[in-house]
Design a binder for these strands. Structure first.
Lengths: 330, 330
DNA sequence: AATAATTGCGTAAACGTTTACTCAAAATAT
DNA sequence: ATATTTTGAGTAAACGTTTACGCAATTATT
C-alpha cells in the first residue's frame, strides 16, 4: 500500500517518466505539471524508494563512515563536520560503528559495501588487514580521517609531526628540559610514529637528547595516564609531560593529584586533541587543539569533487590553547 | 564491471534463481552446487547489491537510528548495545545524526525514510512536531530510547520517577534535608517532568515540603552546572544537590571548586547517568547509573520480535554507585 | 511562410535480486 | 512394479525508479 511514482503518474494523467523527471529535477518538464505533481506527491504522502533509485542509477550519493565504537570523544566532532557539509552538498552519510572484534568488523563492512557507496571514510581507525582487503576488493574510494595509514590511502589529519614541535617548543620556552611523552610509544599507528619522531626531533633542535624511558604507554586510555604517573614514581624524573590524547592527560592529571603532585606547580601537562573534555578539569588543560570539524568538512568536500589522489595527505590547522597546566620553571 | 549473481550463474552453468537461493540460504538446492557457487562468489569478489534485494523483497532488516548531534556522552553506549544485538540477530543499523535545526532535521529524516526501514529508533531525542508528522505519515514503527515521549510512542528507559526516590532516600539517610535538583526544571521533556515529580514526592515521603527555588536549570550542559552554583551564591542554601546528567554534575563540582566550596565536605553531589565521565573527576562522582547498553539491546530485541504495542514502556535497571561526592551530615 | 530549434512528454528497457510456479528426475512407499 | 513424495533447478514476473530515444507540438528564426 505504499505510494509510488506510478500512483502519482496515474492521478496526474501523465507517465512515470515525467514524474521522475519532475521529482528529481532533471530533464525537461513544464512548470505547470511540475506544480501539480509536487502537490500530489505531498498529498499522497509519497516517499522515494531510494533502493529503486540506487538500483537504477548505478552511482550513489551515499558515503559510508566507519567509526570505532571504543569511545573516542572527538569522533562526534568529525561527524558533525561531515554531516554539515554532506547536507550542504546533497550527500548522505551512512554511519557504522565497528568493534575491535575482527569477525564483526568484516561483517559490518560487508553490509556497508552492499549498498553501493561513493566512498568509505574511516575515522581514527587502524584498519585490520582482513577488512582492508575487503575494502580494496570492493574497489571503493577510501579516505582516512584524523589518522594516516600506510596503504596508499589518502588522509586528512593534523600534521602530527609539526604539532609535537609546537608543543615541545612551548614547553622549552617555559624552561622545561625534561619532557615525557605518554601514549605514543607503540610502533603501529602511523600517528604514533609521527608524533614520536616529531617529539625526538624537536628536542634535538634544542640540543636535548631524548630519553627513551620518557616515551611510554600504548593505549589511548584514561588508565594509561593514571599508570604513567605510578610507573615513574616520586620524585618524577621530568618536569613536563605530553598526553597524546585528552583522556590520557586527564588520567595524568588525576594520577598526579592522587600522588600528591600539584599541577602545574610540580608538573606541567600539555594535551593533544583539545576537545571539550579539557574544559572539565581543574586546572583547565593546556592543549594543542586539533580542528576535527574542519577535518570532517574537508573529507566530504574532497570526496565530492573527487580531488583525492591515492597519496594525498591533507593537513588541518592546530590551535594552541594556553590553558592552565603549564608553568614556567627556572 | 561489478559482479552480479548473473555472472555467477553463468560461470556455474545454472540459473540466477538458484544462485539467489543458495546465497540467501532459502529454498531448495543441493550442497554440491552450493559449494561451487559459494566458491565462485568468493573468487569473483561478489558483493550483494542490497538495493536490488531490498527492492525485491518488500521488507527490510534495516533499523534507522536518530541520534542528537549535541554531544550526549551516553549515546555511544546505547548504540553499542544496539549494534551488538543487531549483529547477533542479523539486523542492520542505519545511524543518522540530527541537528537541532529543524529544517535539516526533516531532510535527514526524509532521507532515512527513503530506505525502507523496519523501524526508527530515537535516542534521547525530543522530537519536533514537524519531524514527528513525517515519521507518522511514513507509517514506520517508532521507538524512543532513554527518553519517554507523549505521543503514544513505545519507549525504553530508566524509571526516572523511581530513580529520584532512590537518590533522595540515599541523601536523606545521610542526613541531608535541603536538597536541590539541577537540570530538570523545564516542562518539556517528559523525563524532566518525571524526575521532578519523583523528587518532590520522595521529599514529601520524608515529610519535607520541597522548595521550588531548589529546582533550577533547563539545559543538560556543563554550563548549567557552573551557573547553578553562581546563582545560589554563598553560603549555599542546601547541603546536597542532584545533577540531572553527568555533565551537569561536573559543572557543579567545578563550580563549587571555583567558589571555594569543598565537595563533599561542604556540598554533596549525586549525579544521574553514571557514564565513564564520573570516573574522571576528583572525587569520583556518586551516581545513579543508567543501564544504557541494556536499553540498546532491548530496543533491538523488542523490535525484532515485534513485541512493542504503541503504549509499551519498558524500564531498565538502575545501579547506585556510592562514589565519593556524598558525605554524612549531622 | 517556410524552416529550424526547442519544449514537453510518452515508450520501453534497464538496474540486480527474489520468489511463486513449474516440472522432470530421484528417492521412497506401497 | 507402480504410485507417491521429495528434491533440485529453471522460467518469468515483479519490485520502483531512471533515462536514452523518439516524436508531436510549440516557439523562434529567416
Amino acid at each position: 500500500m505504499t505510494i509510488t511514482i506510478k500512483d502519482i503518474a496515474h492521478k496526474a494523467g501523465i507517465s512515470t517518466a515525467s514524474v521522475s523527471r519532475i521529482l528529481t529535477n532533471r530533464g525537461r518538464f513544464s512548470e505547470d505539471t511540475a506544480q501539480r505533481v509536487r502537490e500530489l506527491a505531498n498529498e499522497l504522502g509519497y516517499f522515494k524508494n531510494q533502493s529503486a533509485a540506487d538500483l537504477s542509477q548505478k552511482a550513489s550519493r551515499v558515503i559510508g563512515v566507519l567509526v570505532p565504537i571504543t569511545h573516542t570523544n572527538f569522533a562526534d566532532e568529525i561527524i558533525k563536520g561531515m554531516q554539515h557539509k554532506a547536507y550542504e552538498l546533497g550527500y548522505e552519510l551512512l554511519i557504522a560503528f565497528v568493534e575491535t572484534n575482527s569477525q564483526q568488523q568484516t561483517e559490518t563492512v560487508k553490509s556497508l559495501l552492499s549498498r553501493q557507496l561513493l566512498a568509505v571514510v574511516m575515522l581514527a581507525l587502524d584498519i585490520e588487514d582482513a577488512v582492508f582487503d575487503i575494502l580494496k576488493s570492493a574497489n571503493v574510494t577510501l579516505l582516512s580521517v584524523s589518522n594516516q595509514l600506510n596503504n596508499d590511502i589518502p588522509s586528512i589529519s593534523s600534521d602530527n609531526y609539526a604539532m609535537m614541535h609546537t608543543i615541545v617548543d612551548y614547553l622549552y620556552d617555559h624552561g622545561h628540559r625534561q619532557i615525557a611523552l605518554i601514549g605514543s610509544s607503540d610502533a603501529d599507528p602511523i600517528v604514533a610514529i609521527l608524533r614520536r619522531q616529531g617529539y625526538i626531533d624537536a628536542l634535538a633542535s634544542h640540543d636535548i637528547t631524548y630519553n627513551p624511558d620518557f616515551i611510554w604507554g600504548v593505549e589511548m586510555t584514561y588508565q594509561t595516564g593514571i599508570e604513567a604517573i605510578k610507573k615513574f614514581g616520586l620524585p618524577l624524573p621530568f618536569t613536563a609531560v605530553i598526553g597524546s590524547a585528552d583522556i590520557i592527560s586527564i588520567g595524568l592529571l588525576n594520577g598526579a593529584r592522587d600522588a600528591g603532585i600539584s599541577v602545574p606547580n610540580d608538573l606541567s601537562i600539555v594535551t593533544v586533541d583539545g576537545t571539550e573534555l579539557t574544559q572539565l578539569t581543574r586546572p583547565v588543560l593546556t592543549a594543542a587543539q586539533q580542528n576535527f570539524t574542519k577535518m570532517g568538512e574537508l573529507a566530504i568536500s574532497n570526496l565530492a569533487n573527487n580531488s583525492l589522489s591515492s597519496h594525498s595527505v591533507i593537513f588541518t590547522d592546530i590551535t594552541f590553547i594556553p590553558g592552565g597546566t603549564v608553568t614556567t620553571i627556572a
